[in-house]
């Protein structure tokens, strides 16, 4: 029984098939990678899974429940957390308050929520930044804050939308470690990523999207050797 099962999901924008008949399954404890060129429909699929878009057709089943027409905050409450491709810190709040907003998802009291928030801040390596205004963080710190906030909601399934974007090689390396630690805590992860070494290092299974359609599924090694994938995603540079 998969944790999340996506069945024949389509999302059309005025006839433009952004996501076209996509089916995929995520099992508990896995890290699943989702790759594809710009405009392949990765973020659109994320938005369907988290309630920001309503899928044109198809079923999304999470823990035996249909979720395709639920609102984002309900989906979050059911245990699906997400981060955004463009970090969205709450600039008028401190780092601690930012994370506390997420922690209130499951925590009843203020003390409990702030406690949980502090733990997540330490876990993501932001210790010492609690009282800093979130708007003044650098890119790397903003990425960690996104992750800390999402973790504070206590998700079972975490959707990461390009958490490596804009990070330096050192920061990426640290982020890879951090994601491993998240997995070790028992959180299942679906991640969109552009950087192949990151996908190779982290994923158990990889799905490849092209123009809204899934063209390949397999282990990172299988996918990276699939000629269709190399042509569509990595480009045809090998022929040149």
């Amino acid at each position: 029984m998969p944790l999340l099962s996506v069945q024949n999901v389509c999302k059309y924008f005025h006839g433009n098939k952004a996501v076209d008949d996509v089916s995929l399954e995520i099992n508990k404890g896995e890290i699943v990678g989702l790759i594809g060129a710009n405009g392949a429909g990765k973020t659109t699929l994320f938005n369907c899974l988290t309630g920001y878009y309503k899928a044109t057709s198809g079923k999304i089943v999470y823990k035996d429940k249909r979720i395709e027409s639920l609102k984002p905050h309900i989906i979050c409450r059911m245990g699906i957390g997400r981060t955004f491709q463009i970090a969205k810190p709450f600039g008028d709040l401190s780092v601690l308050e930012n994370v506390a907003v997420g922690a209130y998802n499951k925590c009843k009291t203020k003390a409990e929520a702030y406690d949980k928030a502090r733990q997540c801040i330490i876990f993501t390596g932001l210790a010492g930044k609690e009282d800093t205004n979130a708007g003044t963080l650098n890119t790397g710190e903003q990425r960690r804050l996104e992750l800390a906030r999402a973790l504070a909601t206590d998700p079972e399934l975490l959707l990461l939308d390009e958490v490596m974007a804009g990070l330096t090689p050192t920061e990426s390396q640290e982020m890879v470690e951090l994601i491993r630690n998240v997995k070790d805590q028992g959180v299942t992860i679906l991640m969109i990523e552009h950087i192949m070494p990151v996908i190779m290092a982290l994923s158990d299974t990889v799905y490849v999207l092209e123009s809204g359609r899934l063209i390949c599924k397999g282990s990172p090694e299988e996918v990276s050797q699939n000629t269709q994938v190399i042509e569509s995603y990595l480009g045809k540079s090998q022929e040149a």
């Binding site: 984002p72 979050c76 957390g81 955004f84 810190p89 709040l93 909601t153």
Partner: peptide, 22 residues
């Protein structure tokens, strides 16, 4: 909690919803 949620909604309501804020 209400105050935090209001300021979060002002900053970015999509991000707030993703954290379980109604």
């Amino acid at each position: 909690k209400t105050g935090l949620n209001l300021v979060a909604i002002k900053s970015n309501q999509e991000a707030a919803a993703a954290l379980g804020v109604n």
